[in-house]
């Protein structure tokens, strides 16, 4: 199939953020932070926590929680500083977003939803003063978010993404050195083009791994009648009469694949979740952090 025809078949190859997206993402981040505080305790201890090693101070950044300010140092120096724990100092999140052609399937597209989840994660990281790096599978350069002000740049970066090519996580995993630093690794994609072991083998000991699998509605529940399926990446096609028996067989195979990812994640103490691209990003992120983030 010609490249142009293949591209025409992808209903949602681009990313577009709604005007209120950042507001929604900020609200989500505040909710999750509050939930985290309730879980881990309020005040300074909420962030340093029991057994967290103090490593130093850093200047207060506007917008940060004022409860983090070290008042004793403020009194002495007249300038606000905050304490830095070893955990906070080393908190670095990496988000790997699959941008291969198959992510352009579905309405809304898988890439669209994945990008929203990635941006929401960046909002959470910025609020928690973590550094976050977003890497697209088909773009060489990653985007780093260090503060809240970087979020708009991240949205622009993601809106420049396009679901194309066949470079998925397999290509990213070949550059394993890039993912040694993160304390948490978020992999967002459809996971249909690789096996669980291949991805989880890149997760280092002590690294928190979150496998966020997003599938299009027609991939989870195929329509009835005759359909000519087209491989989004290779262009091969196959016309099949989707009778009840055939649809049932497909859904069973898909369920087994998803189950295999879940099992592998459990074995490696990673998180795995599978959602439809129609699921709002808030729900995906809340489910991801339902047990906290590390």
């Amino acid at each position: 199939m010609r490249e142009r025809t293949r591209a025409e078949l992808l209903p949602s190859p681009r990313v577009s953020f709604a005007p209120d997206f950042l507001a929604r993402a900020s609200r989500l981040a505040a909710l999750l932070s509050a939930a985290r505080e309730r879980r881990e305790g309020a005040g300074r201890a909420a962030f340093l926590g029991a057994g967290v090693e103090f490593v130093g101070f850093r200047p207060y950044r506007p917008g940060e929680d004022v409860r983090a300010v070290d008042w004793a140092l403020l009194a002495r120096l007249g300038k606000p500083y905050v304490r830095i724990s070893r955990k906070e100092a080393s908190e670095h999140w990496a988000v790997l977003l699959d941008a291969s052609a198959s992510m352009g399937v579905g309405v809304p597209g898988k890439l669209q939803r994945g990008a929203e989840v990635a941006a929401a994660l960046a909002s959470i990281a910025a609020r928690a003063r973590f550094e976050l790096e977003v890497q697209l599978s088909n773009v060489r350069e990653a985007f780093r978010v260090r503060r809240a002000g970087d979020l708009r740049g991240l949205l622009a970066f993601l809106e420049g993404a396009r679901a194309e090519g066949s470079a998925g996580f397999a290509a990213l995993l070949a550059e394993g050195r890039r993912f040694r630093r993160p304390g948490a690794l978020f992999c967002i994609g459809d996971f249909l083009d690789l096996e669980p072991g291949a991805l989880l083998s890149a997760v280092r000991r002590g690294q928190s791994a979150f496998l966020l699998q997003i599938l299009a509605q027609e991939e989870l529940s195929p329509p009835r009648g005759a359909v000519r399926w087209v491989d989004a990446e290779s262009g091969q096609s196959l016309a099949i009469e989707l009778e009840h028996e055939v649809r049932g067989a497909y859904e069973a195979r898909l369920a087994r694949r998803i189950e295999a990812w879940s099992k592998a994640a459990v074995e490696r103490r990673a998180f795995h979740g599978c959602w439809s691209a129609a699921t709002p990003f808030e729900k995906i992120v809340r489910a991801t952090f339902a047990d906290g983030w590390g």
């Binding site: 198959s102 399937v105 083009d193 027609e218 991939e219 329509p223 359909v227 000519r228 087209v230 491989d231």
Partner: peptide
């Protein structure tokens, strides 16, 4: 038949 792109080809 209608053509539909899929990642589960």
């Amino acid at each position: 038949p209608p053509a539909l792109a899929t990642g589960a080809f």
